[in-house]
């Protein structure tokens, strides 16, 4: 059994230590936020936070997590009661298919936690590891800016 702290809760999972964190989150813990995109750390759909860092959960084995706190998009709020960054995405209608969005939000969350008032270039650089195929980039940038301007992250 591997013990993890996910979204503030201690959980134990029976998984092979080599299992990427992504599959533990989705398959064992039934969380939907982190998405499988490439399994190669190239697209960011699986982005979650480990302590203060945004990471590709598809390439982090669950065994490497250790005592670090795992945060997924579910840890920021719910559809009914979204957190500030999620609310900013809703207000800017910053999604089309939305498959990349949970990962985008987590990468942006990590940015805002270390840099509450980023410039647009900062946001672009920080989000560079994450791909969006629908072309929602302009809205995502606005949403992150909106959340940062409020200083609510």
């Amino acid at each position: 059994m591997i013990t993890l702290k996910v979204n503030g809760r201690e959980v134990s999972v029976d998984a092979d230590p080599a299992t990427p964190l992504l599959y533990v989150l989705r398959d064992h813990l039934k969380l939907n936020g982190a998405k499988f995109g490439c399994g190669l750390g190239q697209c960011g759909a699986c982005t979650v936070m480990l302590d203060s860092e945004a990471v590709f959960s598809c390439v982090v084995p669950v065994s490497a997590v250790g005592k670090r706190a795992v945060k997924t998009v579910e840890g920021l709020g719910t559809p009914e009661n979204p957190g500030p960054l999620q609310q900013a995405f809703i207000e800017e209608q910053a999604a089309q298919c939305g498959y990349c969005i949970a990962g985008m939000i987590m990468r942006a969350q990590a940015l805002l936690e270390r840099s509450p008032s980023p410039t647009e270039d900062d946001i672009r650089a920080a989000l560079a590891p994450n791909l969006c195929r629908c072309g929602t980039h302009m809205r995502i940038l606005r949403a992150v800016k909106r959340a940062s301007d409020k200083g609510s992250a």
């Binding site: 190669l40 750390g41 190239q42 480990l50 860092e53 590709f56 390439v59 982090v60 490497a64 670090r68």
Partner: peptide
């Protein structure tokens, strides 16, 4: 070619 960076994903000790 690409390889993801592991800064943040692995601890310094790892």
């Amino acid at each position: 070619r690409s390889m993801p960076g592991y800064a943040g994903a692995l601890t310094k000790e790892q």
